[in-house]
């Protein structure tokens, strides 16, 4: 009926809003495109605060660590970024998708 829907994403955004109200810097990562067998569909979200705490997911746990590291820079500068992960990525030796899929992520600051 609705394979693209991720009901839990709303709760993840509630957490982002709560952190922001507490005065915490917050970044939101959203899966915008996937190729091959990527574990989470477009629209899946991960929210990160300046302390490095996070909720939600953009993969099966393979790339969250890298996205959380990138988020620190996004929170500091306010500049959004588009991240690409996959087997062809130069980061694949360290960070990649074991499933062989590829994923594009939009990472922005909640301002």
């Amino acid at each position: 009926m609705d394979k693209q829907t991720t009901p839990e994403a709303g709760d993840v955004l509630e957490q982002a809003a709560d952190w922001h109200k507490e005065g915490e810097g917050v970044a939101i990562a959203t899966v915008t495109k996937t190729w091959g067998s990527s574990p989470r569909p477009p629209g899946s979200q991960l929210v990160i605060n300046a302390k490095g705490e996070f909720r939600g997911s953009v993969s099966g746990g393979c790339i969250e660590g890298a996205v959380v590291s990138e988020a620190a820079g996004v929170i500091e500068t306010g500049e959004s970024r588009i991240l690409h992960f996959g087997v062809t990525n130069e980061m694949a030796w360290e960070v990649g998708l074991a499933c062989g899929g590829e994923v594009e992520i939009y990472l922005e600051k909640l301002s």
Binding site: D2, Q4, T5, T6, G10, T32, P42, G43
Partner: peptide, 21 residues
């Protein structure tokens, strides 16, 4: 209407549509 989330390429640039139902 379909509860889908997807990118949409347009002359002006790429938009991402995130549906919440």
């Amino acid at each position: 209407a379909k509860g889908q989330s997807l990118p949409f390429e347009q002359d002006e640039g790429t938009y991402f549509i995130r549906s919440f139902i």
